[in-house]
Design a protein around this nucleic acid. Sequence first.
DNA 1: TAGATTGTTAATCGATTAACAATC
DNA 2: TAGATTGTTAATCGATTAACAATC
Lengths: 205, 205
Amino acid sequence: MNADKIPDIIIGRLPIYLRALQRLAEKGTQTTSSQELGEMIGISAAQIRKDISQFGEFGKQGTGYSIPFLIERLQTILKVNRVWDVIIVGMGDIGHGLARYNGFGNRGFQVTMLFDNDPDKVGQTINDLEVFSISGMTEKIKHNKVKIAIVSVPAAVAQTVTDQLVKAGVKAILNYAPIHLNVPKDVQVQHIDPATHLQRMTYYL
Amino acid sequence: MNADKIPDIIIGRLPIYLRALQRLAEKGTQTTSSQELGEMIGISAAQIRKDISQFGEFGKQGTGYSIPFLIERLQTILKVNRVWDVIIVGMGDIGHGLARYNGFGNRGFQVTMLFDNDPDKVGQTINDLEVFSISGMTEKIKHNKVKIAIVSVPAAVAQTVTDQLVKAGVKAILNYAPIHLNVPKDVQVQHIDPATHLQRMTYYL
DNA sequence: TAGATTGTTAATCGATTAACAATC
DNA sequence: TAGATTGTTAATCGATTAACAATC
């Protein structure tokens, strides 16, 4: 156990552990070891044990980790033992696909509002949610105390939209626009850019 | 300049540099410095210089880097100074959104084939491309010598589909299924899982 | 008990940063 | 020339791995 600040690189692996554990749980498995988990996800057993031990002694010598218990611990650490409201800004192809995506269930998130600037899209219903105009976004975010947003607008307006989100109180942004977003340091950003990910692999081809 | 093996973490930053440089180029800027670039993308100037210098001496003391020249160098290093064929397997919401995504242009990629197992989807046309059945996928991949695939099928079948892709000769996989994919070590995989990215941020909320 | 596996230490390995001579 | 900025070295910092005592 370690009360110091946990390195972000470790935090980044916890959701991967959690995802693998939930998969094992679905199959009905009760117990796993750092070795087995490591083989599942391509991470060394020593690293998994070291990462987990930052937060407490969750395993048992000889038998390993209780899967339901470790899931519960990781969910609590990651604060996904509850359901967070998420909004999506930008109803282009990616945003539309995300609005209809059903992969957030039981992972701690729920899409609650959709926004776009295009008058043709505003008022449409996607996955039972109405698309709102961005002009009323700040107010709606504040009113609902939304902390998490997905940005899927064109690159040209992504920073402007981000500034509005930050001003409205959003603290975590998942960015699909192919541009780096500048935010205050108390706001988290994760970048998802398919082209960037592909370019990282072509080097090895 | 360094003929040794370049660390993957450096390779992973090159596409980010490239994206920022292309953005500067679009604005007509001719020259930049490690300092300016670093401020744009939140990376230290020293690290940018060190990363770039792994591949040669591309800058000039006193003036910095020629943007068109550095773009050309990075594109060549990353092998995106050409257009790669990319196929998408799985025409659910995410796959459908990716098929219609127009963000691959001028970044080295072109979606050429779409696949799905659902008889209702096979035969449909998305973005001028016909959706093919997965049953004929291996043959089509081999025939067209496709090296890059995007996997956006449900988690339950993602590994099976991946095995087929690998057998057909695919060497780079962008995985949207929320599951770790096992592949031979000469095959690259990048994972994109929105829920995992979001969970990494909720820790800090 | 015997076997297995954790949590943790120490050693190794790798990445980042600071600083500055070289030079445009 | 004077100012600016690179490429690179050395120092620092951080992450990973190997190994094993503790113990279930």
